[in-house]
Amino acid sequence: MPVPASISPAAPIVPFTLPLKLPPKVAAFQPPKWTRWVVHVACFLLVAGSAGVTLSDLFLGTRILGANPIKEGEHLLGEWTLRMLMITLFVTPIRQLTGWNWLQKYRRIFGVWAFVLGCTHLLAWAVLDVELDWGDIQTDIMKRWYITIGMAAWLLMLPLAVTSTAGMVKRLGKKWVPLHKLIYPIVVLGCIHFFMAVKKDYEDAIIFAAFFAGLFAWRLFMWWRKRATAARAAAPARAAA
């Protein structure tokens, strides 16, 4: 039985196509190793930049984020956490649509940086916003649902971050992919957290949710397509027997 495409990048593309014709994989191309460091540096600059403008507004008197840098910076980091999760989830569809199989190498890097952004968002809230007031933090987590949900999303990211080293990927083997499907509940919780935190204008939250819904729909479609293809492939065999 062939391994499902989502598990192994080397899995063969289904030989004939249902509604959508996908290009063949460009298996031969291997990007140089240093490109991974380029991705790392770009993501680092994003985190350092978002945190940097917040701190610069606070302590150097710049006005990049406006009059309330703590709130604005906190929101900026939260939104970038969701964006980075989105980038992570975009890797597979783009790979499937273009056949650029090598893209897969960067997926884990994006996931790790989504976690780093989630941590800085959490830190901005805990340190700058509620000032490490444990009473307030406890009340918020227990009483305010959107904070409970945000915390849950962050906690679910922990096992994924821990198992994102090359060694852990090897050690977990076939269990790695099912474990990392946790990204789906994480983005659902992240979107709910965003919706509930908004006062009245849901536009941004709706845009995020729509993108994620699209990414989920693509995966459903691919799952259905694979099943239908398998069923078709099985049908002539049965007819012949």
Binding site: L58, A67, I70, D136, T139, R144, Y146, M196, A197
Partner: peptide, 17 residues
């Protein structure tokens, strides 16, 4: 407020609540 405490506030321009 159902979603946040009203016992503290951040004065714009100040670091601590």
């Amino acid at each position: 407020h159902p979603r946040w405490t009203q016992s503290k506030e951040r004065r714009i321009g100040e670091f601590r609540r």
